[in-house]
Amino acid sequence: MNFGFSFVGLLFLLMLFVPNIIWTKFKPKDYEKFCERENKTLLFLERIGEVLVTCLALFTAIKFSWSLILAIAFILMIIYEIYWFRYFKSNHTMEDMYKNFLGIPLPGATLPVLAFLLLGIYAKNVFLVISALILGIGHIGIHHMHKKELT
């Protein structure tokens, strides 16, 4: 495991952050009501995971070479981008945000977590793997609770 700036990590983070920044202008109706009821432990884990994944993805020297693991991680991020296109073309409801996409439950939370988990495995960085797992527990957990509130 080597530390240094990672252009691969930067690309993944850009693919993650750009749609999320756009999303701030197109939040689902009543989203704030759901946020008020979020589990504080899951929220804490999500925030810690976000910081750790961001830092480790940027500063884990990832030497680019073709790999099935890296290809799958990148494909997951492309599917994540397509998920956001679908959401942005929708009516921006909570139902639109939490619809399965290509059979993937909670795609807005699941896809990037899996992609960063695979990126950590590809980079042989146990800290990035653990950080992605922490992020996944918090982020997917919160979105799972939101989806349950819809039904």
Results as ranks from 00 to 15, higher is better:
Asn2Cys: 08
Gly4Thr: 00
Phe5Asp: 04
Phe7Ile: 11
Leu14Glu: 07
Met15Asp: 07
Val18Gln: 12
Val18Thr: 07
Ile22Cys: 11
Ile22Gln: 12
Thr24Ala: 05
Phe26Ile: 07
Pro28Asn: 04
Tyr31Asp: 11
Glu32Lys: 14
Phe34Arg: 07
Cys35Pro: 03
Asn39Ala: 05
Asn39Ile: 10
Lys40Arg: 14
Thr41Ala: 10
Thr41Arg: 05
Leu43Lys: 09
Leu43Gly: 05
Phe44Met: 13
Phe44Ala: 13
Arg47Phe: 12
Ile48Thr: 13
Gly49Leu: 00
Glu50Asp: 12
Glu50Met: 14
Ala57Glu: 04
Ala57Gly: 02
Phe64Glu: 04
Trp66Asn: 14
Ser67Val: 06
Ser67Arg: 08
Leu68Cys: 09
Leu68Ile: 09
Ile69Glu: 10
Ala71Arg: 05
Ile72Ser: 06
Leu76His: 05
Ile78Ser: 07
Glu81Gln: 15
Trp84Leu: 09
Tyr87Gln: 08
Lys89Met: 12
Ser90Gln: 02
Asn91Ile: 04
Thr93Gly: 15
Thr93Tyr: 15
Met94Trp: 02
Met94Gly: 06
Met97Asn: 06
Asn100Leu: 08
Phe101Gly: 02
Pro105Trp: 04
Pro105Glu: 03
Leu106Thr: 10
Leu106Asp: 00
Pro107Tyr: 03
Thr110His: 01
Pro112Thr: 02
Leu117Tyr: 09
Tyr122Gly: 02
Tyr122Phe: 11
Tyr122Val: 00
Ala132Ile: 03
Leu133Gly: 07
Leu135Lys: 04
Ile137Ser: 00
Ile137Tyr: 02
Gly138Pro: 01
His139Cys: 06
Ile140Asn: 00
Gly141Met: 04
Gly141His: 02
Ile142Thr: 06
Met145Gln: 12
His146Cys: 12
Glu149Ala: 14
